[in-house]
Amino acid sequence: MRWIWIDRFVEFASGSHATAIKCVTMAEEHLADHFPGFPVMPHSLIIEGLAQTGGILVGEALKFSTVVVLAKIPKVSFQGYAHPGDTLSYQVRLLDLQPDGGIVEGTARVGDQLVAEIEIVFASLPRSVVPNARQDFVIPSEMLRILNVGSAPAGQAGEAPAV
């Protein structure tokens, strides 16, 4: 199973914040069972999408020199659902960055509707302690396309992404 729970970044401000989107589609197998007659994006996978968005924000800020893993979720709350046809917008902001990890806060929204709020702690581990991690641990190289957004240092206007 492909474990990519974001479709594309639409904003990426290095070391500061990022926004990725996830389009929920009826073709996703798990929606047949979650739930029969009431297909909604599992909240656990919304967490995963937020963690992938935030993990890449942390990893990029550390120049992808380490393996960034989700360490803990101190806070999460859910206020709504995302249904097939909805586009989830995952906005994350870096609260703290250290050589051994970082903390991000984030929200998931469908349009103006808040779906989830979260705080995530990531640990950044030397590649030597995770010997089996692929070089492209979080984002397989064939998916790097999703990072194809304008980027700029914190606080500066970015350029439009190349299409």
Partner: peptide, 21 residues
């Protein structure tokens, strides 16, 4: 165990200090 890392991050931020690992 993972909470210790989180606690150190937060202490550093809240007290504006560096805590060597």
């Amino acid at each position: 165990s993972i909470d210790f890392l989180d606690i150190i991050f937060r202490l550093e931020k809240n007290f504006n200090i560096k805590i060597p690992r």
